[in-house]
Design a protein around this nucleic acid. Structure first.
Lengths: 219, 219
DNA sequence: GCAGCGTTGTCAACGCTGTTGACACAGTTG
DNA sequence: CAACTGTGTCAACAGCGTTGACAACGCTGC
């Protein structure tokens, strides 16, 4: 019996174990996409067993992304002022995305409808309300910040996935062009290569919060 | 001879014909991704013949995206003031992306290095220089606008691809959430559904040009 | 304790994808 | 006319997500 138990242990799966393995797989350097087969063998089970716990791979990816969002959300200091809360949420999202590229690349294309996403939305809406915006401005600023953060996360993830090194450049390859046709590119190409992606996107976040501040002031 | 010519006509392919077919395929409602096989049969040739003209599907997609960028660029009024030029370029890009969803969905992940992209970059850099920004601010504003436009285009494309109707809502499905846990979502959910994606992204563009104006003024 | 039943892991297979190599024909060049 | 280069065709490979049939597990009711 003991022997049988030891030998026969078919690994028992559950959503949490699958999500944990998915995160681990997504964090592996060089892995730019999660495949059901690889995830299954990594769990020591038949790949198709995953379908007992998630309707589809899309469903699984949604769960993984929501996990990331929930993690980012949990690290935000709820006592901080509204603009600082937004800054923290965006930055944590970008950092988590860089850590799990294979998940974040899909973030432009996915809406999770999970607690992580809902919580993040709630936080952003609440922050802009605290900023003193009108109802219309609240939803517009939120939507802009949300799409900026998520697509930024996807962009960062892509860069990390295809260049597993310590690349944080916004541009993967320097822009080279004929100086006579493209004088501005020739002139600023070097400076463009110096841009760091996270810094750049955080500037975008500040641009949005700044816009909110000014909209609130002129009411 | 004439008969032989008429009967034997194995369709003769070239990059331009393939690109034209790719655009047509990408514009078909319900087509959210281009497949080599479908493109080949649409051309009346063996799908693998495409590989005689493009190294890989990635190569082809780059050419298609660059075609879109070149088209957007060509419609910009070169005589207009700098902020208007930027507005036009961004808007045209979004419109073209909505027309060819299957191509634009990949735009976040692709860098074409073709004339379309280079021209668009040149235009943006030049516009921000005309605005009177410092060198650092030029590259930052350009980078922000570029990633905003391209990822925005990808987002719009996705929405159009999966809902071939006349959807221009920023949110595909209304957000529904427990009002006690997520009071802000409950309160603003309806308003969020009213957001139109192109309008929203153009607001982002204006936010960036506005930031440029202010940075130029304080020099 | 045992029968029954729903849950879950396994396996083979389907249809799709991008891509490659061998082959054959066309058109041009020497 | 020969040779060579370019291009279209065909079969095939490896990978993907997904499904259905089957079998073993573990819990529920008697």
């Amino acid at each position: 019996m003991a022997v049988k138990a030891a030998v026969r242990t078919k690994v028992r799966l559950d959503p949490d174990r699958i999500i944990a393995a998915g995160l681990e797989l997504a964090a592996r350097p060089g892995v730019s996409a999660i495949s059901v087969r690889e995830l299954g063998t990594m769990l020591g089970a038949d790949p198709t067993a995953i379908y007992r716990h998630f309707r589809s791979k899309d469903d699984l990816m949604r769960a993984l992304l929501d996990h990331i969002l929930a993690g980012s959300l949990a690290e935000v200091d709820a006592g901080a002022p509204w603009d600082e809360r937004l800054r923290q949420l965006a930055e944590r999202t970008l950092v988590w995305a860089a850590r799990y590229p294979a998940i974040a690349v899909e973030s432009v294309v996915l809406t999770t409808h999970g607690p992580g996403e809902l919580g993040a939305v709630e936080l952003m809406l609440d922050a802009f309300r605290e900023a003193g915006l009108s109802d219309d401005e609240i939803v517009r600023h939120y939507a802009l910040l949300a799409s900026h953060s998520l697509s930024g996360a996807a962009g960062i993830a892509r860069a990390r996935a295809e260049a597993p090194g310590e690349e944080d450049a916004w541009l993967d390859e320097p822009l080279i062009a004929d100086p006579r046709r493209y004088p501005m590119i020739a002139r600023y190409g070097a400076r463009l290569s110096e841009l760091r992606d996270v810094d750049l996107l955080m500037r975008g976040v500040e641009m949005i919060t700044e816009s909110a501040r000014r909209a609130a002031a002129s009411r």
